[in-house]
Nucleic acid binder design. Structure first.
Length: 613
RNA sequence: GGUUCCGUAGCUCAGCUGGAUAGAGCAUCUGCCUUCUAAGCAGAGGGUCUUUGGUUCGAAUCCAAACGGAAUCACCA
């Protein structure tokens, strides 16, 4: 509430004159006045009792008299240690004049020191399509990108695509064995879904093979020899991975394929690129639908061997040490973590090896001050280890590393599990929410005269606003319970509610036509207008706080609050039919500001709004 | 067991740099469309802010412990 600095200064000067000691104006506590009390703002007097040494009511009274004498306020009242002040109409008119004349970008970038960021998010595996978890990840990553960008920072987006490994080999193998040469085109399927289908097929075939194997003598002997439980079911559930690695024919074939891939086998590589290409085409459509893009992609197939030179360097400098079996480790017990392996005894990489390599390579490339990794909180420990390791390696960018750790998305029925078919597919979900939006819009019938294409564009925007807002309004750190029914809600605290406020203003502005600029004059201010102006004045600091915390839910909640205040205003006050021309011009100016702020805020959440609905 | 995160209305969430009678939405009930888009507005009911201590004039907010839940502690990614 920087716009109250004048009041703060005045209060602190008064305190100084009473106590004859210096007093920091910034520590004057001012809050919005509660609805139940009369006044615009409330000055907290309690903290001053010790300094001044009088009863709170007495201080409040004297402070109020002082402000009144200096004409800073129009009236005040005292309730216990609360000094409720009302500001003169001229204050509100001046503030509105300010936001009217000073460009929004200038206002939000005030006191903002430009910095640079690389934001990594999404980071999919290429063996299956994107799901709800990715949507949360992408919504958070993209929104932070938009917010930081809006504040004038230099920001790039990137993702690491996990395009190699056993998983994609499973899809490849299943396609090779059972695919009969089908392609996404021949089956009219989206490429990522097509490839994902073969991953599922592999798993099914494998499970079938496994359950048949469980009937063999070999399996039964194994069970009686090594099982610690009496339950065959429990044992074989636990044993699945070992079976895959030791006995499974399909497992053997998949692993051979992985080895062939690593050896650069031409046929395997060709199949691999072909199938990954299908997946990328599918992902591309999903990204487009989500309205996001990446400035760069890192492919694991190109980075998985990185990091070995860093291991050598770390060994030389004594940051890492070599175990007797030749594996390489780092001791992080001094920072409260464990000893962690950096390189296997056979010299091959582990997860963190390539992450170290990728981090260093990226910095060579981008030279950013901040590197934000949008990755689920299940990997908190990994990132602690990664960052501590980089710190010990003394890389110059270690201070700017940040794991934006978001909570997992769960369904009302529990976790999403592919085995139980409870994965919420990203494309399906978007489809569903857009359909819901179109049904609602058709019922309302506001769009009757528009073309089909225009209508579809609007349904799409409304639907996506519902979905994205639903996800972003929750603080990213929190584990999120996703109720599909609520995600398509269009009423109450939802994206469409905010869109509706914006659309109402657009409708007014269309009807108003060209209106000459409003200039300050004697205008009676409606209480709800004070609320709306206050909210508008708050926008720059909300945006800056959002950026500082990398927490879009702050901004989402602000947008809702502003929309809510506007809806009430719209209900309370006539705009086009205002009592006088001056009042009408002023109200339209206010509406324009609300509209602009909503549009900017929602844009920063990655939500673009339609002009009508 | 160690570490980290979480516990606010029936449900989903705000509020947490300490301030007045703890807020929204959904769901339930009641009003308001011949006037700028009713995806709206107004109202009703619904709470020992997990518990217990502590700090303070004042605690949902800070500290400690307990209870409950989650994640992680792989030569998996």
């Amino acid at each position: 509430m920087n716009y109250l600095n004048d009041i703060r200064q005045s209060v602190s000067r008064w305190i100084e004159s009473v106590t004859e000691k210096s007093f920091d104006a910034n520590s004057v506590g001012i809050d919005f006045c509660k609805k139940e009390f009369e006044g615009d703002f409330t000055i907290l007097i309690f903290p001053l009792t010790k300094i001044i040494g009088k009863a709170p009511e007495q201080i409040a009274q004297q402070c109020g008299d002082h402000l009144l004498a200096e004409s800073k306020i129009s009236s005040f009242n005292v309730v216990k240690g609360f000094l409720n002040i009302s500001l003169p109409d001229s204050f509100w008119l001046n503030e509105l004049e300010q936001i009217n004349t000073i460009d929004l970008l200038t206002r939000i970038r005030k006191n903002c020191t430009p910095s640079s960021y690389l934001i990594e998010f999404c980071s999919p595996n290429t063996n299956k399509p994107l799901h709800l978890g990715h949507i949360r990840n992408i919504a958070i990553g993209w929104s932070n990108y938009k917010i930081l960008k809006a504040l004038g920072h230099d920001v790039d987006t990137t993702q690491v695509i996990n395009d190699r490994g056993i998983a994609i080999c499973k899809s490849m193998l299943a396609w090779k064995k059972f695919g009969n040469g089908e392609t996404p085109t021949s089956t009219s399927m989206k490429g990522d879904h097509f490839v994902g289908q073969y991953y599922v097929l592999f798993e099914n075939k494998f499970r079938q093979e496994y359950s048949e194997w469980q009937q063999t003598e070999q399996a039964k002997t194994l069970f009686s020899n090594i099982s610690k439980t009496d339950s065959e079911t429990d044992f074989f559930r636990e044993y699945k991975n070992d079976y895959f690695n030791q006995y499974s024919l399909l497992g053997k074939e998949a692993k051979e394929m992985l080895l062939a891939w690593e050896a650069g086998d031409q046929e395997v590589r060709a199949l691999w690129s072909r199938m990954n290409q299908w997946v990328y085409e599918g992902f591309g459509q999903t990204f487009e639908q989500l309205g996001v893009r990446f400035d760069s992609n890192y492919y694991e197939s190109e980075t998985y061997l990185l990091g070995k030179d860093i291991v050598d360097d770390g060994l030389k400098r004594g940051v890492f040490y070599r175990n007797h079996d030749q594996s390489v480790w780092i001791d992080l017990t001094d920072v409260g973590l464990d000893k962690k392996i950096i390189l296997r005894s056979d010299g091959t990489s582990v997860y963190i090896t390539q992450d170290l390599g990728t981090a260093v390579k990226r910095h060579e490339h981008f030279k950013k001050q901040n590197y934000v990794y949008v990755v689920g909180d299940e990997q908190d420990y990994h990132f602690k280890v990664l960052f501590e390791t980089l710190k010990k390696l003394n890389v110059e960018f270690s201070a700017g590393l940040k794991h934006l750790s978001y909570g997992m998305v769960e369904l009302t029925t529990g976790k999403m599990k592919s085995r139980e078919g409870t994965i919420v597919d990203a494309d399906d979900l978007m489809q569903e929410v857009i359909e819901e939006a179109s049904e609602g819009a058709m019922e309302r019938g506001e769009l009757a005269e528009l073309s089909l294409e225009e209508k579809n564009q609007i349904f799409y925007k409304i639907g996506m606003s519902a979905l994205k807002y639903f996800i972003l309004k929750v603080n990213y750190k929190k584990r999120m319970i996703f109720n599909p029914k609520e995600s398509v809600d269009m009423q109450g605290n939802t994206g469409p509610y905010i869109v509706n406020a914006y659309v109402r203003i657009q409708s007014i502005l269309r009807k108003a036509g060209e209106v000459e600029n409003w200039s300050i004059s004697q205008i009676p201010i409606h209480p709800q207008e004070k609320v709306v102006i206050t909210q508008l004045l708050d926008y720059p600091s909300v945006l800056q706080e959002t950026a500082e915390l990398l927490d879009p839910s702050k901004l989402a909640n602000y947008c809702y609050a502003l929309a809510k205040d506007f809806h009430k205003y719209y209900h309370d006050c006539r705009i086009l039919n205002a009592e006088t021309q001056e009042l009408k011009k002023y109200r339209i100016a206010l509406c324009k500001n609300v509209s602009q702020t909503l549009e900017h805020g929602m844009e920063c959440l990655g939500i673009s709004m339609p002009e009508r609905m």
